[in-house]
Design a binder for these strands. Sequence first.
DNA 1: AAGTCGGGGAA
DNA 2: TTCCCAGACTT
Length: 369
Amino acid sequence: MNKSISKHTLEKLLQWFLQVREDYFFRKQRNPYRVWVSEVVLQQTRIQAALEPLERFFSHFPDVKSLADATEEKVVYEFRGLGYYSRARNLRKGAIYITQFFDGKLPESYDKLLQIPSIGPYTAAAIASICFELPYPVCDGNVKRILLRANKWSLTTRDPNVDSKCISQLKKLYKGLPAGNVNEAIMELGQKICTRTKPKCTICPIQDSCKAFAQGVVNKYPLIPKKKPKVDVNWHLFIVVHNNKVLLQKWNNFYFLKKQKSFPSILDFPTTKKQECSWETKKRQINKFIKKYSAKPLPSLKHSITKHRIVIFPYIIFSSCWEEVKNSNSLVWVSEQQAEKQLVSSALSKIWKLYQQSEILESSHDKNT
DNA sequence: AAGTCGGGGAA
DNA sequence: TTCCCAGACTT
């Protein structure tokens, strides 16, 4: 006997949830602003890693108004440690939008929530159900994994059809149930029991409704997507310093970290032919800079963005004579304090720390020249 | 439709 | 070490 998921299944799930529910600080009151920010953060950051930065974020931005009034730089800075910094910029945009169009309060409507920057289908459903008891199922990675197993649907969690399949199945069952609690319950099941690896099926409260468990094939679901090949990138970047100022570049078309300030850079793709000029040409360019400006190489470091395997080669240049300044308005000198606050992404802050450790070199260099 | 964007836990 | 996750936005 393997029954499919029913309203009774969700009722059993709720019972389990009420017993194991974690008392996270952001759950204490169902304040729409706090639920919004928390859900945006928890989209892609595990709860344990998010707790501290999230409390810090709330202490600086306790409500929509404070977030809307803050500068983008400050918002991104207080988001540090959480990754995916476009979320911070979009949260600020969202706060401004809410101020402008909804009188500073999150609207009690799924469709209106969806208009707000940073709020997509998942976040709109989470806020609508948790704060306003509107019957919208959330569909995140946990929900998809659970339903793909329970239904034995032979799809990957990335399949574009999965979201609508999951939502339409759940939506039929939500009538008369507390939507917010059901949504939190199903996601907590995914975190604690129906985990991606080593699921704890023997203590699963909805084991009876799981087709994969009944047939002993839980670890065959969800289907594994075929992986894409990685691209190697060598990222040569120049930390140009003079009089405690550092030269940063905001280049909107740069390959990585668009819209963020970075360092003047040269990219090389050693294993692909896609680059605009040969490695020999790049090497000549780089060597030219090294010679011309007495660039000092720092230890290289590894980094990864999406399907790229990146090796970063940082060089320090102690000089105010960077000719390219004249040719580019995207280059700007900033103080070290400003740089500290603007180089937030992990790759850049790693490089910045590396530079600070070697700052002693700068002072000795200055004395000797 | 496909690519961007971290940081951490598991393999 | 390497692999992999996952939602909103961008292109």
